[in-house]
Write a protein that binds this DNA or RNA. Structure first.
Length: 363
DNA sequence: AATTAGTACAACCGCGACCGG
DNA sequence: TCCGGTCGCGGTTGTACTAAT
C-alpha cells in the first residue's frame, strides 16, 4: 500500500477513507524514520468537522489531564487530529465556560467600542467578553456588526465616516477638467446630486431599507431617455430649479433621526449619535459636512443647505427655468441623460465600482 | 419542487511571537 | 545570539442552512 501511495498518488482519490487514513499514517511514520518530520497539518491526520466521538475523547482527556502540550495531546487522547485542530476545537467550541447563542445588544455595543480602540485584536476583545471566543466575535463582526456600521455610513475599520462615496465626486471633478461645455453642465448637476446621495447614504440605517444606496444606484442607472437637457444655445442645464426644490424636500424623505437609534460608546472621533440630523428642514449632517470639506468637494449643490443650492442655480447661468413646486429630488436625476454621461465618461462603471466596493449590495 | 443566492459559523491555514536549549 | 519547536492570532475557506426566485 505504501508503495502504491508513493508511486501512484492518484489512487488516494479512490481509496476508502479508513484505509486511506491508515495508509497515510504509515507514510508519515516512514517519512519520520527517513529523517523528515512530517507536518501534522499535511499527513495522516483527520481534518474537517469533528464527530461527537472525537469531541467526547477530547473533553474527557482535558478534564482528566488538562491539555498540556497540544502537540502531544492528540496521541495521548487517542485522536487522529493535529494538536492545532484539538486546541481550536477546545478553545472555540468545547470549553465549558463558553457562552453560546445570540449576542446581546450590550455585547454588540461593547464589541464595537473595543474594536474602535483595539482594531482586529479579537483575542483582546474576547478577553473582555466573558464566555465569548475570539473566533465567535470575529465571525459576528464580519457577518453582522461590520455591515451594521457600513449601513450607518461608518467605516468599520476606522470607525469614522465612510469616504469611498466621495471618491466618486472627486473623480467627477477630474472629469470635469476634460469636459466640454455641454457635458460640464451635466456633470455639475450629477456631482451636486451625488452629494445629496452621499449625505443620505451616510445617514440611512437599517430601518429605512427603501432608501439605501443600492436603491439610489438602481434608480440612477434606470434613468434614461431624457431629451433636450442641454439648451442648444446655452450650455447651462435645464431643470436646475428642480434640484433646488428637491433639496429642500430632503428632510421630508425620512432620513432624519435614524442614526441615533444606535449609539455605540465610541469615545474618539464623532460618535453616531452626534450625527443626528435635525428634522426641521434645515437639516445638518455633521459627519457628511466634515467629510465633504475634507475631500475638497466644491459646494456646487449642498445636500443640506439651500443656500448652496441657490448658489449653484445662480452659477449655472440664469437661463434656468423654474420647476414646478412638486419637484422631487429625483426630478433632477431624471434630467440627466445618464446613458450619455456613461458613454462619455464611464459614469455607470464608476457607480457600479463604488456600489460593489461599498459592500452595500448585500443589504 | 428545483435552483440560486445569501448568510452564519466552524474549521483550517499561514505567519509571527515566544521560549527554552 | 541563534535556532527549532510550540503556541496563539487573524484572515480565509468550506459547508450547512435558509430565503428568494
Amino acid at each position: 500500500m505504501l508503495e502504491l501511495l508513493l508511486l501512484r498518488p492518484s489512487c488516494i482519490l479512490f481509496a476508502e477513507p479508513k484505509s486511506l487514513d491508515s495508509s497515510l499514517s504509515i507514510l508519515a511514520s516512514v517519512l519520520r524514520k527517513m529523517g523528515r518530520a512530517p507536518c501534522c497539518d499535511e499527513i495522516g491526520v483527520k481534518k474537517g468537522p469533528w464527530t461527537p466521538e472525537e469531541d467526547k475523547l477530547l473533553v474527557e482527556y482535558i478534564q482528566k489531564n488538562g491539555h498540556g502540550s497540544w502537540r502531544h495531546l492528540p496521541k495521548l487522547a487517542g485522536l487522529n487530529r493535529c494538536g492545532k485542530s484539538c486546541r481550536l476545537r477546545w478553545t472555540n467550541y468545547l470549553r465549558p465556560d463558553i457562552k453560546r447563542g445570540r449576542f446581546a445588544e450590550e455585547e454588540e455595543k461593547l464589541i464595537i467600542h473595543l474594536h474602535s480602540l483595539l482594531g482586529n485584536k479579537w483575542s483582546s476583545i474576547a478577553a473582555r467578553l466573558p464566555g465569548r471566543t475570539d473566533n465567535e466575535i470575529k465571525n459576528h463582526w464580519n457577518t453582522h456588526l461590520r455591515k451594521k456600521l457600513l449601513h450607518m455610513g461608518i467605516d468599520p475599520v476606522t470607525h469614522k465616516p465612510r469616504t469611498d462615496l466621495n471618491l466618486f465626486t472627486s473623480s467627477l471633478n477630474l472629469i470635469k477638467l476634460q469636459a466640454d461645455a455641454t457635458h460640464l453642465a451635466k456633470l455639475q448637476l450629477a456631482q451636486g446630486l451625488l452629494q445629496v446621495l452621499t449625505t443620505t447614504a451616510t445617514t440611512t440605517s437599517n430601518s429605512n431599507p427603501n432608501m439605501d444606496l443600492v436603491g439610489l444606484m438602481g434608480l440612477l442607472s434606470s434613468l434614461r431617455n431624457y431629451e433636450g437637457f442641454v439648451n442648444s444655445n446655452n450650455s447651462s442645464p435645464h431643470g436646475i430649479q428642480g434640484s433646488h426644490s428637491s433639496l429642500s424636500s430632503l428632510p421630508n424623505m425620512g432620513f432624519e433621526n435614524q442614526i441615533g437609534e444606535f449609539q455605540a460608546p465610541i469615545d474618539h472621533g464623532p460618535s453616531p449619535h452626534e450625527l443626528r440630523v435635525e428634522s426641521n428642514g434645515a437639516s445638518k449632517n455633521l459627519y457628511t459636512s466634515s467629510t465633504m470639506n475634507s475631500n475638497a468637494m466644491p459646494p456646487l449643490v449642498s445636500a443640506t443647505n439651500s443656500e448652496n443650492a441657490q448658489m449653484y442655480a445662480s452659477n449655472s447661468g440664469g437661463s434656468v427655468p423654474l420647476s414646478s413646486p412638486s419637484s422631487t429630488l429625483f426630478d433632477a436625476w431624471e434630467g440627466l441623460n445618464l446613458e450619455d454621461l456613461n458613454n462619455d465618461f464611464g459614469l455607470k462603471d464608476m457607480l457600479e465600482q463604488i456600489s460593489s466596493s461599498s459592500s452595500l449590495h448585500s443589504y
